[in-house]
Design a protein around this nucleic acid. Structure first.
Lengths: 265, 265
DNA sequence: CAGTGGTCTAGACCACGCG
DNA sequence: GCGTGGTCTAGACCACTGC
């Protein structure tokens, strides 16, 4: 039962204790934890030589787990951990010709609209040469209820049909973006590739989405093509990884062709 | 242009410099970074009072970003960042009646097979009462090439048809699991719900998958039902978040019903 | 202003992997 | 044994927020 000798480090044991208390409801979602100095005093009962640095390391463990969030000058709070549910593939409802749903829960803020070269990873996803110039629209979406940023989205549109149009203006578009693109290009969306990745945030993303260093983001690159394979739109969306879940409902095909060589579950 | 006064903290500026060097190929994937003490000496040219702790904080930024990985007693290495590609929805190829593809790139290790109560989050996903007993199969999949663990998977099967069968034995099943389940239950897989989440690893997951603290895991809960809505299988898969990407190719429907109230891109 | 979390120093010793 | 990264102390001062 007892672990002879090899004890986990002090900061881990303190983190374990605090985690247990959070799970047990001693501190509930939204509650402020006692301040570092108060916690320091408290745990010095068990560890008389405990330093502030080590106490902070313990809290850092819980921050890395997304269990608590620190706000400079205010305190450290138990995270709400409400995840935004997002359905995969549910972008293209033809009936949705206006902005009703788009603006129901989220407030849009256009950060940039204009021409710019595409970043390398976007060019790679779409099969473009590096540095190609496109019409770029970047926006930040806020939860209307809480006011907190939820999503950082960037769309890249070919200059061929988007240049000189309202897509280059920093105003909210009159209907769903893909419908605008279909109107302007004269082509219809046919095939899509979504690539989902999870990674650490860049400094800019961390700032825009107000996420702690050490947590992650979900990164979607969405490449939409017409039936003739020309790219109509590439878009990129970033969510705080601990505030989102992706739901995918589908039917199992009766008989299907064999799959590729990728890993099974 | 210049930022008067408000400079970023020392550890950030050092991290920025090291990040730039990695991006520029000064250190390539797999390379060992100079040791902490060597880096300390080097950056003391710019910051004469630099402490080891601060130097470590700078490296910690890159570790949190998944850009480098530290190995105790060995060194700090630029991460390979090879992501395993996984297609969404590609589990059900009826033609794939044997283990060929399953064993081509991955080695299976059965960690557990037998009866156990389901964990709460699995019960919640499937709509079960908490603590329901099911047949549980847990396995760890290794990359045959590198020998590194890739995926931790657990399947939960109803006792009604799985109890007393080979599914309770710690041996590799003769064909794809879902085909075994269809044989034993007499029902066919019809509807599936996949829920993807990103979160910090538990201690057990971190150990099994050998991932660093501070990085995350991708968590998939897969609930498969027959046409009559009975649950045939719930499975849960965990991947190191920085070693996987999910690819979803699909066609845009010509005309479609309106979407739900969830967020758009 | 007081109280919070954030950064930093200059040391010390420990734990791990390798030769 | 030696060099690596990991943990830890006992201080110090800074930056942010709210009163």
């Amino acid at each position: 039962m007892s672990d002879p000798g090899g004890k986990p480090p002090k900061y881990q044991r303190i983190a374990d204790e605090l985690r247990r208390e959070i799970k047990n409801g001693v501190y509930r979602a939204g509650d402020r934890l006692p301040s570092e100095t108060v916690l320091l005093d408290r745990f010095r009962a068990a560890f008389p030589t405990l330093s502030l640095q080590t106490m902070r390391n313990a809290i850092g463990v819980l921050r890395a787990e997304g269990l608590v969030e620190a706000r400079h000058g205010i305190g450290t709070f138990v995270a709400a951990n409400r995840r935004l549910q997002r359905r995969s593939r549910h972008r293209y409802g033809r009936a949705r010709t206006d902005q009703k749903l788009l603006t129901a829960h989220l407030r849009h803020e256009i950060l940039f609209a204009g021409r710019a070269p595409v970043p390398d990873h976007v060019a790679a996803a779409a099969g473009f040469e590096a540095g190609r110039e496109m019409v770029v629209r970047r926006r930040l979406l806020f939860d209307r209820e809480t006011g907190s940023p939820q999503e950082l989205g960037t769309s890249y549109l070919p200059v061929s049909f988007a240049a000189g149009t309202f897509l280059e203006e920093a105003t909210v578009v009159p209907k769903a973006l893909f419908l605008c693109v279909e109107d302007l290009s004269g082509k219809r969306y046919a095939q899509v590739r979504d690539v989902w990745r999870w990674r650490g945030p860049t400094a800019a993303e961390a700032e825009a989405l107000r996420i702690a260093a050490g947590s992650g983001v979900v990164h979607l690159i969405h490449v939409a093509r017409a039936a003739d394979d020309t790219v109509l739109e590439v878009s990129e969306s970033i969510w705080p990884a601990d505030r989102i879940e992706i739901i995918d409902d589908y039917d199992v095909p009766e008989e299907s062709e064999d799959a590729d060589g990728l890993s099974d579950i």
